[in-house]
Write a protein that binds this DNA or RNA. Structure first.
Lengths: 142, 142
DNA sequence: TTCCATACATACCTAAAGGAGAGTGTCGTA
DNA sequence: TACGACACTCTCCTTTAGGTATGTATGGAA
């Protein structure tokens, strides 16, 4: 049986861990929860706007459904990135604000935003080049 | 693109765009493609290891299936983040290397890795606190 | 002669992402 | 009396993520 596919159980031995595997696993888990489109977008919006209400937040983020907005905000609350404040008034009022942790993550993601803005032309160019390359790939080279 | 989502059609008026909406949309699209767990992990691995073969890459990334590895690498190639080199030898050999663009993105994500490492305790504490809060909140309900 | 190694492709399947739309509760307004 | 506002929740549905298993090509090793 074996065969199967790649048994990624290290025939090469232990991969060179520069940090201890526990921390590494934890960091990966954190990244997995945080490296999310909507999370990044909401984080950014809250960073810019500060304390914001639900509907307003949805408008500012743009293109997000109510469902994903709710869900992502809950996750972020759970992860300690935002605080959720409920005002017990008759037309319901709830607002969201970044925590210190949230702000620090926002700052960490800042580089990615800058990257996307700075390299947008290169990124598009690379994609275009790839498309052309694929189209021209009928060339029997090497 | 076209907002058929919520009625987020701005009863508040136009959201305050600090940049032009076209750039904004492009940046969001880029983020959407790049803010991905596997992409980040592979990026990081290639940054550390340099030119790496397929199977080896899978081991180093860890926990990734062959399918996702292939898929993510293709996406990254398409996005101009990695180059794929095929050696026409008998046991197939293919390796991957970051492009300049890939390296710059890796650098941009660096802050997030640092954040995750630096705040891992706070992150866990926040999650624990939220769990307790939820438990206590349901208790105090009347 | 059979098997192994590499770097996939392909097919099949389940779970999660994510959108659309309707319902909820309360109250002020038209 | 009906409606709209807000911040949801719930159901239904489609798409994507992602895993497992198997196939493929080929030459050298067993």
């Amino acid at each position: 049986m074996t065969a199967g596919k790649l048994d990624f159980t290290a025939p090469y031995g232990t991969p060179p861990e520069h940090t201890d595997p526990q921390l590494d696993a934890l960091v990966r888990e954190i990244i997995g929860r945080v490296a999310d489109k909507w999370t990044m977008l909401i984080l950014e919006t809250l960073e810019q706007e500060g304390r914001t209400r639900f509907t307003r937040l949805g408008e500012l983020v743009g293109g997000i459904s109510q469902k994903m907005l709710t869900k992502t905000l809950r996750q972020m609350e759970e992860g300690g990135l935002v605080t959720r404040t409920i005002y017990p008034v008759i037309p319901p009022k709830v607002d969201y604000e970044l925590t210190e942790l949230g702000r620090s993550l926002s700052a960490a993601f800042c580089g990615v935003w800058v990257w996307a803005e700075h390299y947008q032309e290169d990124i598009e160019a690379a994609r275009a080049a790839f498309a052309i390359h694929k189209a021209t790939a009928s060339d029997t080279s090497t």
